[in-house]
Computed example of a mutant assay.
Amino acid sequence: MVREQGEFAKAAILEGLTQQMQEIAEASRRRTQLVASASAASGRVTVTVNADGVVIATRFGSDIDELSYEEIAKAVTSAAQQAAEQVRRQGQELLRPLRDKRAAMPRLSELFEGLPDLEATAPTVEPASLAPPKSRERLARLTEPAPDFRNAVDYEEWSSEQNDRGATSSGW
């Protein structure tokens, strides 16, 4: 009876994982179709980006010649950044149901006694600067120390602590 319950639990977990993988694949496929456009310089410049924020189209209005080269360059950069932010938000919205489902699931550290909560100790990834090359902001970031991972646990140390715990302990 106990074995049957264990097999049923395994089958349910596998079914859940299979469904989750299918949902991730579908969301990934739908994400590749995302595009966003933004305009600048009173609509004289319009830039369209794909889901990765890569420019896929740039259009100039018929009155673009009223702008200087510097104004056109700034408008293209501004429109591209706005479009990239829009497509980033679209991607987040598309993936929200998957993130919500993931948040409702127990963490590995909750399932396995003694396992550290890796998500809580993982370093955060800062967004890349939108500042132009050689700008003060970009140069200032070069002198900042890189983030480090100070509360990592050595695997051998953690593993040896685990050997003396639970049903697999030699004291059983």
Rank of each mutant, 00 (worst) to 15 (best):
L94F: 02
A84W: 07
L111H: 05
M21Y: 08
R150W: 01
L34N: 03
T32Q: 08
S170Y: 02
R136P: 11
R44H: 07
R141S: 14
Q81W: 03
P147A: 09
N50K: 06
V153K: 14
I64R: 04
S160Y: 01
R165E: 11
D148L: 07
V153L: 12
A146Y: 02
T124H: 11
T58E: 08
R141Y: 06
R165C: 04
L142T: 15
R165L: 14
I56E: 00
A9M: 07
M105A: 12
Q22M: 05
Q22H: 05
V47D: 00
E110D: 15
V76R: 09
A73F: 09
S42E: 10
V47C: 00
E157P: 06
A167R: 02
R31S: 07
E144L: 12
S160F: 02
E157C: 07
R44Y: 03
G166D: 07
A40V: 14
S37T: 11
E126H: 01
R136C: 05
T18D: 05
A51Q: 04
S109K: 08
A40Q: 11
V2L: 05
Y69N: 00
R99H: 04
Q5H: 09
G114H: 13
L111D: 02
R99Q: 09
G91Q: 10
Q22E: 12
Q22D: 07
S129I: 10
S170P: 14
S78A: 11
P116Q: 03
N163I: 05
P145N: 05
V47P: 00
S39G: 07
W172L: 13
A51R: 02
A11M: 07
Q81M: 08
A75S: 15
E70R: 06
T32Y: 00
A25S: 13
A38W: 01
S68W: 09
A75E: 06
S160L: 05
A122H: 09
F149G: 07
A152Q: 12
E137K: 06
V54R: 10
L14M: 14
R88L: 05
E126R: 09
V153P: 08
